[in-house]
Nucleic acid binder design. Structure first.
Lengths: 356, 356
DNA sequence: TAGTCCTCCTACAACGTTGGAAATACAACG
DNA sequence: CGTTGTATTTCCAACGTTGTAGGAGGACTA
């Protein structure tokens, strides 16, 4: 079986505690002793038993990441960034999918799903402002995303208003004046706060440019999936509304809209410029490549992991909840008349014919 | 602090062991006692401490999934499927990204990265047939993917030859005769065994149809990324080779090729039919939607998790390694002249204009 | 010289759980 | 009414680690 600290201690001729001290970099260990222990560890290929350590110390070194679904690009990229950030801090990540269901999300908060974790990063999709009370949980929790605000926990989110304004400004800068929007929310305006915040950013940009707001250009689409982006664009075209640009509230909607435009034979960006929001990898690879606003996902991941670890190690009374807004920037691509600023590099191996 | 078994025992007026027995469904507990314990558990909101359980039992209930990168769609979908499969078996999944580096993959096998896990599902990308010896590790390991074969561990993989043959047959069935291939491997044919297996499937289908093999149609591309698919297609067009269809060895290559075709003004499927392999979600949403061969990812995930759990619980001498090939099927879409068999559904909420 | 302060190391207990064995209760039996 | 068998519960130890307390030895200080 696997070696334990006792085995190492025996081989090195010291007590277990000294082995523990060496492993934990306790300073008062003679270099010679340290060396003996080290080589015993190597010789036995000893690895600390993390269950035992976790039991003793009350920390597992694992955090949970609860997201709707990995197969949604946005969340895959978020998970990627979170895992990288956590790895740098020597923490492992247990991923849980809520399936984008309300029950799944409630189960996360009830602590029924993720176990063996010191705390959870949670990106809700179904829960909304009315469910804020559910966030009062007995374990460290950091909230991600734009569904719930002003809760009792730390919250890291993109800058909704700012990034929507930036997207709109980008379209204005390339001379567009009839800018449609896809992704507003139909019935409960308070429910998807981020849709409203994005509408606000859009209106702010219009107002600053002295352009009147035309409700006919603002289209509902929910949820923000590709098919709804495509459908909203079909509607927009069918209604005969005049427009020369569209800002979709996320990239997935944008890719759907792009598809409809392509099928309808409408040229992008000549006839209609398109910009999304999220800057998922896929936006670089559509035809044409799609401009987007990068909401600072890597930064969000880094900050969220930091906040969570801070909370995990927090002693005494908890500090008041913090809300962090990430920095954003426009990634201009073909769909708004730019060449891709980060073109995908071809491999070093130049493709050629295979010798038979 | 959180309640322990002792607290529950005190409240229920029984011993800790009885509480443990209730939790573990030990049969010899009187219904009345069981009930008392149950209500004490509810009352105290008791949750077993998994570190302690793990220490005592030697199992953590967590498996590791080591993949190159979550942001690659294929792996996000694989992880999604694995997590779902694991959840059904009451097991949690810790995700590790190797970053598609050799060092990262070796670190996984050295057990340095994933800890607190009972076993690992590993999908290598850099390690190859020469590294088979590294798979001899002291923990349960199940291999995924097509980089290494005939190793000392269980292995779950798609059916390379079969699915490539199916893709080619699909193109033949719609009347294509000059079928190009993108994704062959340039220098070390043995190194990417799956590329060779797919070439074999392609040639088998051609042979069965009595169509001669033309090496000029077989294009190198490595790694199988979008940009290389695009570049290989550019090469193919520049070379002036005549072809009426292309089979790309994965979907990402196919999406790249599709992009080049679109830019070159070549109609898909009228001029050139396209089929990929992997059936990633994205294939359904490209313009035109791309046909693909579904390699049975869900089945692969299910089987892999089952095998791993079986190995974890295996007592005594290990059974000989097993290799499982998944079932495959063609998903015909627009790029080969079909309407999408699984059209994305529009949301129930009909998009419309937002009331101001 | 005795007292004090470092440095380095050890012994012991405890974290919360479960396996194993032993103890107790209860029912049926002869 | 003692015996046997089975159902139910308890006691104890152990899983591998680390925090606390403290001891041994040496150097420095008064």
């Amino acid at each position: 079986m696997a070696a334990t600290m006792h085995d190492v201690a025996r081989v090195a001729g010291v007590s277990v505690k000294t082995v523990s001290n060496v492993i934990n970099d306790y300073p008062y260990v003679r270099p010679a002793t340290r060396e003996r222990v080290r080589s015993a560890i190597d010789k036995l290929d000893y690895r600390p038993n993390l269950s035992a350590r976790g039991l003793r110390s009350g920390k597992t070194g694992v955090i949970g990441l609860a997201i709707p679904e990995l197969r949604q690009n946005y969340f895959a990229e978020l998970a990627d960034a979170v895992i990288r950030a956590a790895e740098r801090r020597n923490v492992a990540v247990l991923v849980d999918q809520t399936g984008a269901t309300r029950e799944g999300e409630i189960a996360v908060l009830a602590g029924h799903r993720l176990r063996l974790t010191d705390g959870i990063l949670f990106s809700p999709e179904q829960l909304g402002q009315d469910d804020i009370a559910l966030l009062q949980v007995p374990f460290p929790l950091v909230l991600l995303g734009e569904r719930m605000f002003d809760g009792p926990t730390d919250h890291v989110t993109m800058h909704n208003v700012g990034s929507a304004r930036a997207a709109t400004e980008h379209l204005l800068e390339i001379g567009r004046r009839r800018i449609a929007v896809i992704g507003a929310h139909p019935t409960h305006p308070d429910d998807i706060r981020s849709a409203n915040l994005r509408v606000r950013g859009y209106r702010e940009a219009l107002a600053a440019a002295g352009i009147p707001y035309d409700p006919a250009l603002v289209r509902v689409a929910a949820p923000w999936h590709r098919e709804n982006g495509a459908a909203a664009m079909r509607d927009l075209l069918a209604d005969g509304v005049e427009f020369d640009a569209v800002f979709t509230f996320n990239d997935t909607l944008g890719l759907g809209a792009l598809r409809t435009l392509g099928q309808a034979g409408i040229r992008v960006p000549e006839d209609v410029a398109v910009i999304g929001l999220d800057n998922i990898d896929e936006a670089r690879f559509s035809v044409p490549s799609m401009s987007s606003v990068d909401p600072g996902r890597d930064q969000i991941a880094e900050v969220a992991v930091d906040l969570l670890i801070e909370r995990i190690n927090e002693k005494g009374d908890p500090a008041p909840p913090r809300q962090i807004l990430a920095d954003y920037r426009v990634a201009a691509r073909e769909s708004t008349g730019f060449v891709d600023p980060e073109p995908a590099l071809a491999s070093a191996v130049s493709p050629s014919v295979l010798a038979d």
